[in-house]
Structures are given as C-alpha cells and as structure tokens.
Design a binder for these strands. Structure first.
Lengths: 230, 230
DNA sequence: GCAAAAGTGTTGTGTCTACACCCATGT
DNA sequence: ACATGGGTGTAGACACAACACTTTTGC
C-alpha cells in the first residue's frame, strides 16, 4: 500500500504587468533553447529543492528585474495539461506581478515588454496565462485597491485615469474615478499640488493610495448581510 | 547549463462542500497512517504519471463519492510551504467541489461530513484550504450564478434561501433573494407549484437556475465601461 | 375565521454615470 | 482675454434593503 508517487518537474512563472506608454504590457524573454527556441516566454524557472513557489518566482524574477520593483505578486493558477511541454512532464504555477508606472527596470538583452493586447506567439501555455493575469487585474481594479501597485506613490487623477484606462481597456472619466475611489477611502489627497504644465491649466492636486497592500473595498457585490446599509 | 530540475511529489486535494442540515459541511476522511495518523484530512492523493490535476482530483474523489454528484469543481490554489509535510517535499493543488443539497452520496466508513464552522483539527494545511474554499464560495454567491451547484434542479425560494444562509453565514430574506436573482436572469419560475405543507400556507412556486454552468452575473462592481447603464 | 406560508407593492437610501458648470494657471 | 486642463455641483438612473400588505392554502 506504500505506493511510489511519481514526480513531475515544476516551474514557477510570472506575468509581470506594467502600464507603459499608455498600454498594459508584460515582460517576456526570448528562448535560446528548444523547445520553442526563438519564441517569447514568461520569466520563471524550475523550483529548487524544498523551495516554496513564491520564493521560487521571486528568485527567478531577480534575473530579469529588480524584485523590489514588483509592487504586488499573487498566485494565479497551476497549469498541468500533460501536453503543455513536449519533452517532459512539467507543471507550472503562474503568478501575476505588478510594477508601478514610474519605474523602468533595467532588463537583460533577451528580455522586453510587449503589449498584452498584441502579443507575439508565446511558448507553451504562456499566452493563456497572460490573459488570465490581465483578467485578474481587471476584476480586482473594480473591487479592491489594487491600483496602488500600478501607480507611483503620488499622482494626479489624470495620471491615475490613464493607468486605469490602459489596464481596463475602456474609457474611465477622471471625475468619476476620483469620486469613487475617494468615497471608498482608497485614495486621499496629499494636500499638495503639482505645477501647471507648459500650456497652462489649473495645477492638479496630488493624491496617494491610503494603503500599499491589497485590500477588498467592495466586499459584497450584492446579498449584503442585513443592516449593512442599502 | 543543462540543470537537473528537482522533483517534488504532488497531490491534488478537494474541499467538497454541501449544505446539509442547514449547515455548510465538507467531506473529510480519517487518516489511517502517519503522518497525522487519526486526524481528519481532505480527499485527494498523488498525481499519477502524466495526469492533469483536474483529472487527478476527479479520480481520487471517485474513491469517496460519485463524481457525477459534484456539480461544480474549480481550482483554488497550490500550497507549497516546504514544511507543510513533515516527511517529504510535497506540493498540493487544492480544488473546491460543490454538491447539490438533494443528493446524499454514499461514502466509505472512514469518511464523513463536518460543518465548516466547527472543524476538527485537520492534517497538514487542510484547515486553511477549507477556509479558502468557503470564502471562494461566499464571494462567488454574490456575483455569479454558482448557487446552481448547491441547489436541486427545482426548488422553492425558501429552500434556496436556506442554502444561501448556510453558505454565506448570515441572514438573507426570501423576498430580496428572489428579486435579485430573477432580475439578473439567474433564476426563472418553472411555472409549476408545490403542494402546501401539512400546516397549510400558500403553495410555493418552483424555480430553477437558468443555467447549470458558472456564469458571472455582476461583472462590474464599479468602474463600468461608459454607456453600460448607471 | 384563523394561523401559516408565500409572494407583491412600495418606500427610502446609497451609489453610480453623465453632464453642466466653475476654478486656476500660462500666454 | 482666452485657451487649457483641473475640479465641483447636481440631476437622473438604478439596485438594493426593509417592511407593510395581500394571496392562498390547511384546519
């Protein structure tokens, strides 16, 4: 009855997302070896002996970006289709990482940013993973404060609006964005203003996220417990 | 540079949830062997050679319940703390399974149902997994049609209300539950009525879920795209 | 008639979108 | 002055919780 368990290889992967030039982009590197030689792939790699998954993806990301620049990291899913790797039986646990828009990490020569809505052909099931990551981000922008991980510490509402538009893929008005996030206690004014731009205009107020950790702000979409307000 | 990847063992686990006797319960079995001999644990087991995770958990669940009775199955998370197993380096991918309230699967002698809010001490990190499963169910009850997996094909609003109360852990009124779910197009009347109970009362209308597959019904908690209604 | 259970009508509240309007700066 | 971008005021739509009230049954 002491069965001998089989052992697959296991990799950790991350779709690292950042809004760059007004578009949601993800970090990819070009594979130098088979399989999928020459194709683009997500950063990541094998799990080390007795290493936790999150430690593993942080370690592998270090080879591509400064991990301190990843403002948020969360596990997405584990891919296990036996056909996902042509040569070996390999599982992959995928993460989504978010990088604030004001940093520009130095990346290796084989590595670059690619718009999520215009991906090249990706190795393995990495294309699917990027879409799952994007959808997770979009969903959480609606009911959490996850925007903190896409934005600089201080920013104007217009700047924040650009980030939301890029990530959500649809228009958002600065007016309503500000009101929703302030009402929920997600955003607060710093009290300072930025100078007007070269063409004039009223100097914008600066805002910051109240918290730099993920927090659910709209817990009950419906079916609230009694007495929790209409 | 051809590194030799290390290989952990990997198990699939499932928190199978069902509302029984008005309480949300989960299926546990008593371990006959070390480690954690005598403790309660989630159903599941080792991944077979080149087996996908979902196939694996379905196979293992077959030993505890008829898998046809699991109305919904979805992956939750992969646990990887190296200390989670005392003897071996083992990863575990957890699923949540839902069973409709009108079936009573026959289960082996070592297996039984336990209220989620009154769990015994569980082996490994299985207690944590059950709580993640419960929270996932609660969240999805709010913005999806996932109730279909807890309910019989046809039911009265009062019966559905009992399921929601048990799963959510707070009161829900039949009046508002019906209106919310019908307005969203999740629930529809079958057109038939059930007989009155022995003590009288108006005979209740029967309802059914419009779809028996998971569907998001409240997509944008906020920050809706323009023109999508107030 | 009366108790019991189901179901509808209605009111009030909070949150959202949309849009008009006012504010502060550069040229 | 006036263009430019920032910000506020306000109205209308909607979804929800709460609760009163009506309907339909058994006894």
């Amino acid at each position: 009855m002491t069965e001998q368990p089989s052992r697959a290889t296991h990799v950790s992967l991350a779709a690292v997302l950042q809004v760059r030039q007004g578009r949601l982009q993800t970090l990819l590197w070009r594979r130098a070896q088979d399989p999928y030689r020459g194709d683009w792939a997500l950063p990541g790699g094998y799990l080390a002996e007795r290493e936790a998954l999150e430690a593993s993806i942080r370690r592998h990301l270090t080879q591509k970006v400064d991990v301190g620049e990843v403002a948020h990291l969360e596990q997405l899913t584990t891919m296990s289709e036996p056909s996902r790797h042509p040569d070996e039986w390999q599982l992959a646990t995928a993460y989504v990482g978010l990088v604030a828009s004001d940093v520009d990490p130095t990346v290796p020569a084989d590595t670059g940013w690619h718009p999520v809505d215009q991906l090249p052909s990706l190795a393995f099931d990495h294309g699917e993973i990027v879409l799952v990551a994007r959808d997770r981000l979009r969903a959480k922008l609606s009911y959490t404060n996850i925007g903190f991980a896409l934005a600089p510490i201080e920013f104007t509402v217009s700047e924040l609006r650009e980030l939301y538009v890029a990530a959500l893929g649809h228009e958002v008005t600065a007016t309503n964005l500000q009101r929703v996030l302030v009402r929920r206690g997600v955003l607060e004014p710093t009290g300072t203003r930025r100078e007007s731009g070269p063409v004039g205009g009223r100097p914008p107020a600066l805002f910051r996220f109240c918290r730099q950790e993920l927090e659910v702000t709209d817990q009950f979409a419906v079916l609230r417990p009694p007495g929790s307000g209409a």
